[in-house]
Each structure stands twice: as structure tokens, then as C-alpha cells.
Simulated scan of single mutants.
Amino acid sequence: MFYTFMSRVVAPILRLIFRPRIEGAENVPLYGPLIVASNHLSFIDSFIIPLSLPRPLTYIAKADYFEGRGLKGRFVRWFLTTLGHVPVKRGAQRAAMGALEQAVEILDNSGAFAIYPEGTRSHDGRLYRGRTGVGWLVLASGARVLPVAVTGTEKIQPLGASRPRMFGPRPTVHFGPPMDFTHLRDLPPAKARRLITDEIIETIQKQSGQEYAGTYNDRANNTAKPPGTTT
């Protein structure tokens, strides 16, 4: 009921406001388990990507987003919770592991689950080295990965801005062909996670045209990660 309301009433209004350009829509599988892996330039990415994807999408989201105060905080909490977003606290490894285990459940039920391999938003527009949680998720679920590159969202809501610019610059969402990693499943898990993650980041970089930083995003140093995903 809620997804129908969002997709038929709210989403068209938001599309008129943000007017995202969608490239590679033909690459999006409409059915089956799917990990949606994207670069991350702005808080609003978590709204722009679902608006551009023709199927329901669930995210892991910072617990901070669920703990806001006032009317805005209540609205964001209601919106994210109703969409099925999974909160995770920074620094809480057990919570992070639990969130990824919930992601596996979603994928096992042929759902689509979104993740930002960099761990947090880029503060300078560069693309950072991926955290291997996405590799863990690929190996645990066997799902294909849809690489996504967003551009222009940092102009709509820059890092630190409290609200997005309405009717501002148009963002672009580029969907690449789905990636399959079944050929890596027989490798040692740590090596497979690293190879999967690096290939995903490399693909996103080619789509987005971002400069590759080659290091982890320091803002994500305290982000909780499943065991074995620190390399």
C-alpha cells in the first residue's frame, strides 16, 4: 500500500522537482536479487537513486538519520522506516553485521538492496577505496551487482547543507550492466571480497568520471564493518 502510494503519487512529484536524468535504464533487472552499489556524493543520493530505479530498493542507513528531532527528524525517520531502510550505528560492529544479515534476507527474497561501498559521502568529490562489506554481501547472497554512478547531487545538497535545493541543477543517475561474481566464489574469502569490491569501484569510477583517491574515506574510519572487511 505505502509503496504504491509512493510510486504513484510522491515519486512523480519528486521527479518533477529534481528532474533526474537516467542513463542505462535498460540495464536494471526488474526481478531477482540485486545489490545496487553506488558512489556517494550527497545525502540526497538515497532519494534520487530510488526515484530512478523501477523497483523497490532498501538501504542500510546511519542510525543518526533515524534520531533527528523536530518535524524534519520525525518525517525522515517515518520515511526511511516505512521504506524498510535498515539503521546501523557507527562503531557498533554487531549492529553492522546484523544489518548486512538483514540485507541477505532481503536478497534471498529476490529484493533489491543498496549499498555505498565507500562507506560514507565523499567530502571532496573524489571516489574513495571501497570497504569490502559489499564483497561480503555478494559472497553471502550470490546476488548480481548493479553498478550505479550519480553525478550532480552534491550541487543539490552539498555536504553540511540542511536541505536540498528545489528545482536546482539536474542530477544524473547512470546504471551500468549487472556484474556477476560467481567465478570468484572458490577463492579465499578475504581475497574474493577485495577483488569484488575493487572491480565494483573501478566500474563506478568509469561511469562517474570521478578522480580515484586510492585511499579510504577518513570520514568512514569509525563506520562499523563485518568481520574480515577491513582490507
Results as ranks from 00 to 15, higher is better:
105 E>V: 03
49 I>H: 06
53 L>S: 03
85 H>V: 00
67 E>T: 10
110 S>N: 07
103 A>S: 11
63 A>R: 13
61 A>P: 06
101 E>W: 03
129 R>Q: 14
123 H>Q: 13
54 P>D: 06
129 R>Y: 08
79 F>R: 05
79 F>H: 06
23 E>D: 10
17 I>Q: 12
121 R>V: 09
46 S>L: 04
96 A>D: 04
23 E>A: 10
100 L>N: 10
114 A>I: 06
93 Q>P: 00
55 R>D: 09
128 Y>E: 14
43 F>H: 10
60 I>D: 10
97 M>G: 06
116 Y>M: 12
86 V>M: 01
106 I>V: 15
108 D>H: 05
73 G>T: 02
42 S>L: 05
90 R>P: 00
95 A>Q: 05
71 L>G: 02
106 I>A: 04
77 R>V: 00
18 F>D: 10
78 W>R: 12
86 V>E: 09
30 L>T: 09
54 P>Q: 08
56 P>E: 15
67 E>S: 13
21 R>E: 15
65 Y>A: 13
53 L>F: 13
40 H>I: 06
63 A>V: 08
64 D>S: 10
55 R>Q: 11
25 A>M: 12
21 R>A: 09
89 K>V: 05
67 E>F: 02
118 E>F: 07
94 R>V: 05
114 A>T: 02
28 V>H: 02
23 E>N: 09
31 Y>Q: 07
49 I>T: 07
57 L>N: 12
129 R>L: 09
89 K>G: 00
123 H>A: 12
128 Y>M: 11
108 D>K: 09
